[in-house]
């Protein structure tokens, strides 16, 4: 099935340019595994990067730069890099690079309870500015009504969810910012597992959800 909700263009640009922090890059790259349209856009954007690189006024290097480099290369001879074989031969639910970040496919995951039947797994990156996590919402359940203090991208991996903006299925991206208040509801077919990245805590409407927020760090 073809993905119908994509990463916003300016985020694809930030990814290709290398200015997007790691947590955002993780969700972009995972979406790219599932969406050839966005892969093509990133390819074109990296080509822009190549053209811009080519158009720069060259800086002079030290005179012995090439000789130094060849000496370095000779001293590490035999270090030809071959393409890495994929870690699995069968299609997994979690595509790369997400699978490597969480240490395996679904069966390897250790979910933490979030309340109301929902679970999550925070994903470690070296990026302090945004948090990536896997979320699991039971089939048919809603996520409590919430707004956003910053930006949020959510990528569906299993099942589906619906908001006022429509239905989101495997590979789809939902983009929300501080203008968006929503209550996503997981589809009835199976538990909905998503990768979500946020750069600020969510704003829950209900007191109950707000009270537990500091303890679960969402």
């Amino acid at each position: 099935m073809r993905t119908s909700h994509h990463i916003p263009d300016e985020m694809l640009l930030a990814y290709a340019a290398g200015s997007a922090p790691e947590a955002w890059s993780l969700i972009v790259a995972t979406h790219l595994s599932l969406c050839s349209d966005c892969r093509a856009v990133v390819g074109n954007t990296e080509q822009i990067g190549g053209e811009l690189l080519d158009s720069l006024t060259p800086e002079t290097l030290s005179e012995d730069a090439f000789d130094l480099l060849m000496r370095e290369i000779d001293s590490q001879a035999g270090k030809q890099e071959l393409p890495k074989a994929p870690s699995t031969q069968i299609p997994s639910v979690l595509p790369e690079p997400l699978r490597s970040y969480v240490g395996g496919d679904l069966h390897a995951l250790k979910w933490r309870r979030l309340g109301k039947g929902a679970f999550h797994i925070p994903i470690a990156t070296k990026d302090q500015s945004a948090q990536a996590r896997l979320l699991k919402v039971p089939a048919g359940n809603p996520v409590p009504m919430h707004g956003h203090n910053g930006e949020e991208l959510t990528l569906v991996l299993t099942g589906s969810f619906t908001t006022h903006q429509g239905k989101f299925q495997r590979g789809d991206i939902e983009a929300a910012d501080d203008s968006v208040e929503h209550m996503p509801v997981a589809g009835p077919e199976e538990d909905c597992i998503c990768l979500a990245v946020t750069d600020a805590p969510l704003k829950f409407k209900s007191l109950g959800a707000r009270l537990v927020q500091p303890f679960i760090g969402i």
């Binding site: 890495k84 699995t88 790369e96 699978r99 990156t125």
Partner: peptide, 13 residues
């Protein structure tokens, strides 16, 4: 930081 990338040979791609 890393720059996470998709894997062209990933069977899930």
């Amino acid at each position: 930081e890393n720059h996470p990338e998709f894997d062209q040979n990933d069977p899930s791609l």
